[in-house]
Write a protein that binds this DNA or RNA. Structure first.
Lengths: 247, 247
DNA sequence: CAAATAGTGTCTTTAAGACACTATGCC
DNA sequence: GGCATAGTGTCTTAAAGACACTATTTG
């Protein structure tokens, strides 16, 4: 399995190395919906899944990328122009069959970015925001459907006990806006009183002066104290009866 | 960055591909301590970190391993002889500098296995069970120290709200033994009454008849209902005052 | 029967859910 | 002022913590 060059460490020779890619699942909240970024695979005979919708990503470039995280950041910047997202690793998927180009392992990250209304994507026209439910119904390239399911599951489950939805909003945001962000991701309504107690008790927000909401009374604006990590709550939310927050 | 052979997909040529490895953090409870398996790096001029302690692992073998998970299973079987562990992916670490052999990405899994008293390791003599705290103090090969920290952190944090410690015990086990397993991993005592309520309410155990504990009254034995996934509890444990469960 | 451990019951505490109430800004 | 939304207060509920109590096995 290994070929040794004189004076070097023993390593697998070129063709015995799996291909390595990085894919990024980029979530945002837009038009009262949880959305994610999909790209179109390039056309051409030398491209697998040509023209199919896929997660943004590509080969690790050993000359350009210092690390997997740096590679994910590069792809995020290329697609969205964003430079300070919440970024965490989701996991890796690798097998002999998931890519027709050969044994391939992909390192998947998931990112949460705010979107200002009216600010378009900076990257190519081949990428677009798609709401999560229709993305899940699409036939995506490679095993990106399976990866997307895992990403959505991870997001929804972490939202139950962390401050992740705050990273989907432009700052400063109000508590009602933050609650709406939770409800959009979870697809259900949350009690206002319990929600506010929990957010304020968790000490992860800094006041940023009165801010206009969508209508009615002014609300206190907030910023995230530590953008590097999400706050973790001591207990999960539970479903409430009543009107659904989905849609 | 890509080289095209006639009639094939465009892929990075051999030397431009990062190396791919899989490492496994294998935990067990033994002698009232949380332990993990460490191996010694082979000796020789062509081996990086020769003779240093490291996590068990190695290169993905594209001819032999159908997937990353299969590769992790193979390494686990080679080292411990175990074939039905709890196995989950921890994440991947990849950069230009973490391996002197070149740009390298490792896919890390963590496994929980029971150990019967007196049953030795099936693999090479170069592997041994080391208690977690001394392993964390060792200077390990590559970035395995950092990876180990992440694994221990993940284990301790998931133990707060899942049934993971059950996978560290040989079946059938009693509730007092299970509680001890929790206390060993967490390093603190848990109230017996609350513990029993929580375990029994979670519906992940099947009764398996009276079983002898270490002394005193017989206790009910239990088996894990679903060995594929851990149960998730609705709330985390909190520290109790009193004697520490560590050591 | 004593020692040791298994298992139960009861009261308290914590944080969330339900829901009604007050407060403030814009038209 | 009226409407819409922001924010608060109070009572209830779920699940865990404290801790004392009973039960069953072995020596």
């Amino acid at each position: 399995m290994r070929s040794t060059r004189p004076g070097a460490f023993a390593v697998p020779s070129g063709p015995e190395r799996p291909l390595a890619t990085v894919d990024v699942v980029i979530f945002t909240v837009m038009d009262e919906q949880l959305k994610l970024l999909l790209v179109r695979r390039p056309e051409g005979d030398t491209e697998p899944y040509a023209g199919r919708a896929a997660l943004p990503g590509g080969f690790v470039d050993v000359a350009q990328d210092a690390s997997l995280q740096a590679c994910a950041m590069r792809k995020l910047r290329e697609k969205t122009g964003f430079d300070a997202p919440y970024l965490e690793q989701l996991g890796s998927w690798g097998s002999a069959t998931r890519d027709p180009r050969g044994w391939c392992a992909t390192h998947v990250y998931f990112a949460l970015v705010p979107t200002m209304p009216g600010v378009p994507l900076s990257g190519s026209a081949a990428s677009e925001w798609v709401d999560v439910d229709s993305a899940l119904r699409k036939r995506l390239a490679f095993d990106h459907g399976e990866i997307l399911m895992a990403a959505v599951e991870r997001l929804r489950s972490k939202v139950e006990y962390t401050s992740l939805p705050a990273f989907l909003l432009p700052e400063p945001f109000t508590l009602p806006q933050l609650q709406r962000s939770y409800e959009i991701v979870l697809g259900r309504a949350i009690d206002k009183s319990a929600f506010r107690k929990r957010m304020l008790d968790a000490q992860f927000l800094a006041e940023a002066g009165p801010t206009a909401g969508d209508a009615g009374r002014l609300a206190m604006g907030y910023r995230i104290l530590d953008r590097e990590r999400a706050a973790v709550f001591p207990r999960t939310f539970r479903a409430v009866e009543g009107p659904s927050g989905r849609g």
